[in-house]
Write a protein that binds this DNA or RNA. Sequence first.
DNA 1: ATGAAAGCGCTAACAG
DNA 2: CTGTTAGCGCTTTCAT
Lengths: 335, 335
Amino acid sequence: MAVTIKEVAKAAGVAPSTVSRVLKDNPSISRETKEKVQAVMKRLGYVPNVAAQNLVNRRSNIYAVIMPPFKRKEASSEPFFIDILMAISQEALKYNKTISVVAGSNSEELLATVQLMNRQKRVDAFIMLYSSEKDPVIDYLYQEKVVFTIVGRPVERANEISYVDNDNVLLGQTATEYLIEKGHRDIAFVTNHESNHISKSRYNGYAIATMQRGLLTHGEFLLVNSMDYIEFIKKLESNQITAIFAIDDLFAIRLVQLLAYNGLHVPDDVSVISTNNSAIATTIHPYLTSIDIDVNELGKSAIQLILQQEENETKIPKLIISHQIIERESVKKRN
Amino acid sequence: MAVTIKEVAKAAGVAPSTVSRVLKDNPSISRETKEKVQAVMKRLGYVPNVAAQNLVNRRSNIYAVIMPPFKRKEASSEPFFIDILMAISQEALKYNKTISVVAGSNSEELLATVQLMNRQKRVDAFIMLYSSEKDPVIDYLYQEKVVFTIVGRPVERANEISYVDNDNVLLGQTATEYLIEKGHRDIAFVTNHESNHISKSRYNGYAIATMQRGLLTHGEFLLVNSMDYIEFIKKLESNQITAIFAIDDLFAIRLVQLLAYNGLHVPDDVSVISTNNSAIATTIHPYLTSIDIDVNELGKSAIQLILQQEENETKIPKLIISHQIIERESVKKRN
DNA sequence: ATGAAAGCGCTAACAG
DNA sequence: CTGTTAGCGCTTTCAT
């Protein structure tokens, strides 16, 4: 049986309440008794029982991270998700918070789990790793006034919902301008997401940059699983594309492979810049020039945003994390 | 304020204990009162307070999943980790268990977190997603007799520790034999893990298969980040390798890319089989022929193994999950 | 600065 | 089959 606060109290010759006060560093406790009690706690190997604390404090000290619905399983293969999960979990540790994960194959499943967890007070807050239009989970969280934040940008009620995100249009601009500075004039934005916010914003950034420089602004180049790859390559060639801005590292790697297959070498024949700067960007040559979105900071911030909201329920904090180009081998200067 | 068991009791005209019994479906309760109480619970929207339950039951109903130390960040990029996490989390849901994650950059960090969580009784059990020799976390869990299981095989005390795993030597054999049946005689086992159990076991399987068929058994082909790729390609060519057994899908994709870069096309010039059958195996052509390790079943089993141990502390259940070849495009028949 | 006592919401004997 | 009662381990007024 674990040692309780009572036993510590008895052993130290004080009241349980005193021990409790020592535990939370209550200022109205004499240095003397404080040290005495701490010594006893240490000697007895006392560890507070969180269940008891939770009961009386009415919180669980657990935050739930909501993964995207994985019917499109492919999406979650991007190292981003595991990276951000780790970042969040590391930061949570500093505040003695535990991170739990909720996963489901569709948003209805996710919603059911979230509702249960919330009603049973299993968790104090939620961190969403995705957002989509008319998402029932976001709606629920919002309506129930549950503390939560989104890593990414809410597509609706962006002003009333806490979130942390990169500036994706600026990011798209940055990437495109980088390519332009490297001498490229025929640049394509290539994605595998039919329609998501990130894709759209980055494309907008791409469009802004190309227009500002008076270059041709192509539509999105879509490359999905089911597509005819030959078609795609042809389109690239007929448009004389020399540089590609790819939606993420994993996708970029596939692209590089596809190009190589068709005799197009990166970066000699075509340059590629991608985003996320995940570990896979440097696992094989050509190492990818990639835009670091600072996953670590995103994760840290998510925790901070929750903490802030717990302190001040009325505030709806939002945060934009800046990005940074990591130059490597997949983009080549062109004259 | 949420409705409590007392309020339900009063509203239903019974004692709190009766309500509690109804909650846990205690057989010694009349159908009549049971239904009556249930009706009231529903009407009042009663939801049990888990903190209170946890306090008196002395368990948290939380299992922690321990991620591998991510100093070798690359490793966790394999979709396996997110996939297994999801599978575990889905299965846990069925038993009303919550999954929390613990991550750290090295095993000391992990150990500290695990110790804390265990001593504070934040979690009831642990599921490890990795295992390595003399791992301090495993040692701790083992010595403290904490309930835990490993997804993968413990490298020490394999008989005294619960785990679920594939049969990796058999898997290596299966893959190799498949290649042999496809007419390949010069087969290489290629990995990026300098020395881990999975790699070793699969290599052994490869060695067994090649020997049994009287083929040349090469040593492990190591291909790591820092290496000279030209060297690697040359080695492949000088050994006239026509088929490769790659350690996992992510690695295989990189290999395919590398080969394409050097004018070697998969599967026309060289065939590739990999393992895990993750989503990335089918995101670009050639779709990878891959051995499905049944991540879902691995995840489910992990939960089952914990459940079993909670029921019967003396049992140390182990489980082997079978694999299955998924034929796709990366292996070609050779005459 | 510290102690006494009540109570968080639930469960588990023990009675009856 | 059901009610009474006594905690689980901690926090928090309210006194002193």
